[in-house]
Simulated scan of single mutants.
Amino acid sequence: MVRHVRDAAAAAAKAVKTRRETLAALTGSGMVADASAAAEELSASGRAPAVVRVRRPYLRHSVPLEVETERNGLPREKRPPAGRLIAPRGVTGRLHLLLLFAAACQAAPGRQWHCNLPIEHGRDQPFSLERLVCAFARHRGGTGYVASPKANKLRQITEALKTLNDQHLLDLPHRGEYQPFRDFSLLCDSGQSTDNAPITYRVPTAKEPCIDIPTEFFSRGWVHLLTPSEIAAYLMWLDVNQNPQHEEPYVTGAERAGAYGLTREAFETHQALQAFGLVDVVPDLMRHDDGKYTDYNPEGRPPPCHRVTVTAGGLSLEAAPRITEVLNRYAATADWGRPLGARPI
């Protein structure tokens, strides 16, 4: 038994080793604190929105698509925009959410956002993508050249802008020219633009079906320190809670895979999200850890799904110390338990 616990803890420590190192680098450099401060300042200098509204088609298909296996979700090209932007490296998904945040700060509902944020920070501009974005990369060998942290971040930002252009979420009218990123603009977050029919992004109005992301998601560092899968899953749970399809807050495997396009691996991030204090999970007692269930009678009871409620005020604390504490605990015990200060009373 002791050996089993020790082996589980060693495996857990290995699983989160890279994440803990990246977290330490981003916080130790002051990058997260400065990016969060920039988000606070950007909000205060503009409309100071309480939430950032994101259109529901960004997250889910209105009618779930058929999948070969619910475990793997949809192929990337068939996922809604948020699901297509999940990637283990780079800042594409985070950058897009930050651009939607900036638009909510600077443009009224129903109006087009005219981006005035340069990529590189300068003396005459208090806000820039360089300041709003956190990015970290390791030198992986194979060459003697090591890019500076600044060059590394700018490269990741420009690569993200190209990807957003490829996904029809951003217009680069000068791509291929000497200054390819000047005058870029957002396209509609619904993802329905095409090469020949771009749809200009306008800040959503109150009448449009959306989810509301609290601005603390940006000003407390969560957008930078959650993994891409955790971000996608958290947005899904916001939608489940704000736009309920059932009497209780759950998603079936068919909905998670066919509507949101997410894999079972992304769904399993509910353990970390609960440990961070962002959601409360009530497990279905008949469902096992491997996703299987016993004696399920579809005629006699609701689906055997976890009930997941978004925690009110869960984003209000700074992300860095909370995530650090949880990851350190997980590395030592292989347990996604919440810190004492994050447990419901």
Results as ranks from 00 to 15, higher is better:
M1R: 14
R3C: 07
V5N: 08
R6F: 12
D7S: 12
A8S: 09
L23H: 15
T27G: 04
G30L: 09
M31F: 09
M31T: 13
V32H: 05
A37F: 07
A39T: 03
E40H: 10
L42A: 04
S45R: 10
G46P: 02
A48L: 03
P49L: 00
P49N: 02
V52M: 01
V52I: 02
R53P: 00
R55Q: 07
R56G: 00
L59H: 03
S62T: 10
S62M: 06
V63D: 04
V63W: 03
V63E: 13
V63I: 13
L65H: 11
E66N: 09
E66M: 07
E70P: 02
R71M: 11
N72V: 13
N72S: 14
K78V: 03
R79S: 08
A87E: 15
H96L: 13
L99Q: 14
L100E: 09
A102S: 15
A104L: 05
A108C: 06
G110M: 09
C115D: 14
L117T: 11
Q125W: 11
P126G: 10
F127I: 08
F127D: 13
L129Y: 11
E130K: 12
L132N: 09
R138D: 10
R140E: 15
G142Q: 06
V146M: 07
K150W: 08
A151H: 14
Q156C: 05
T158W: 02
E159M: 12
A160R: 07
A160Q: 07
L161K: 08
L164P: 10
L164C: 10
G176L: 05
Y178M: 04
Y178G: 00
Q179V: 03
Q179W: 02
F181K: 03
R182P: 01
R182D: 03
C188R: 07
D189Y: 01
D195P: 02
A197P: 01
I213D: 02
F218C: 04
G221I: 03
T227W: 03
I231L: 07
I231K: 09
A232P: 06
Y234H: 15
D239H: 13
D239L: 10
V240Q: 10
T252C: 12
G253R: 15
E255S: 13
R256S: 15
G258K: 09
A259S: 15
R264C: 05
E265V: 13
E268V: 05
H270A: 02
Q271F: 09
A272K: 00
G277P: 00
L278H: 01
V281E: 03
V282H: 11
P283W: 04
P283M: 04
D284T: 06
D289Y: 07
Y293I: 01
Y293F: 14
Y293C: 11
T294V: 14
T294Y: 12
D295F: 11
N297F: 05
G300Q: 06
R301H: 05
R301I: 01
T311P: 01
G313R: 04
S316K: 08
E318K: 07
A319E: 00
V326M: 00
L327W: 00
L327P: 00
Y330E: 02
D335I: 01
G337A: 14
G341H: 08
P344D: 12
